[in-house]
Design a protein around this nucleic acid. Structure first.
Ligand SMILES: [Zn+2]
Ligand SMILES: [Zn+2]
Ligand SMILES: [Zn+2]
Ligand SMILES: [Zn+2]
Lengths: 137, 137
DNA sequence: ATTACATACGTAATATTATAACAATATAAA
DNA sequence: TTTATATTGTTATAATATTACGTATGTAAT
């Protein structure tokens, strides 16, 4: 069923619950809310919020997903190695979220952190935008 | 009672509920949670969550306070004119929150936004740190 | 094999954070 | 004054997240 087979390689160390939650986020690509995940995975055997939250916590810890704080949502990591540092653009009109990849912005932030001697352990940056699609309309 | 008199000048356009919520945040200086604010202001006549949330919403809109998204908390604006752009450091050990003022960092972020041609309407930056006090211990 | 330890699981209950819906009142324009 | 807009008060409810408790499973040391 579904697309489990496409992800087995990467997710082999995960438990069943962690795997099915990750797969859902992977297949969606959008930020999803915990209770939406719960509803979506009832058929896979998830019955309680805690099962979802525990899986989400673990996946966040592993850096495989991120929490979009201002949306109370979780999204698949679109980056190979952002560890616990995250940067997103969030469209104010359509809600579309994009993880900002290894580009000038994240490099620049690192520089700023160095310059300002901030003893940063991690950061979460949320940029609210009007995306290209919404700009046209 | 309390310290209303010290803030009247600034807060004259505000309604009663907005004023007492703002005063509490002003006097505290720390991020406070909505239900803590509610409990604290029962004696001032606030009875329901909605009264607090409505005041908070308005104050955020006016830029007088900010929401610290990852803490579900609200903090007085420590800056004259950050409008809707915010940047905080949050100590991972003691929870202390500082709003980053008009310094290299915020200027640098603005520059990055320009360089990357991001069509930003506003941003919220949360830097997790170990503060000086916690670093020593 | 047995013990100890850490991690994960399942379930129920509860806590925390936030909004919907509706009637009333105040404030500001027109 | 009439009309529109914003704010209030109250009750109920929705949405988000954690505590508590007992069980199971895997791993490593004895
Ligand atoms: Zn990522
Ligand atoms: Zn959009
Ligand atoms: Zn501010
Ligand atoms: Zn600290």
């Amino acid at each position: 069923m579904s697309s489990n087979h496409t992800h087995n390689k990467k997710n082999q160390t995960l438990t069943k619950n962690q795997r099915i939650v990750l797969n859902l986020l992977q297949d969606s690509g959008e930020p999803l809310k915990a209770y939406f995940i719960l509803d979506s995975l009832k058929k896979e055997g998830l019955n309680s919020p805690l099962q979802v939250y525990r899986a989400l916590d673990k996946l966040v810890e592993l850096g495989k997903i991120h929490k979009v704080e201002s949306l109370n949502s979780f999204i698949i990591c679109n980056n190979s190695n952002c560890a616990s540092n995250t940067a997103f653009t969030i469209c104010e009109r359509c809600g579309k979220v994009k993880e900002i990849k290894n580009n000038n912005l994240t490099e620049g932030v690192n520089e700023l952190v160095r310059e300002n001697k901030l003893n940063i352990t991690r950061y979460n940056l949320e940029f609210y935008v009007v995306c290209k699609t919404c700009k046209i309309n």
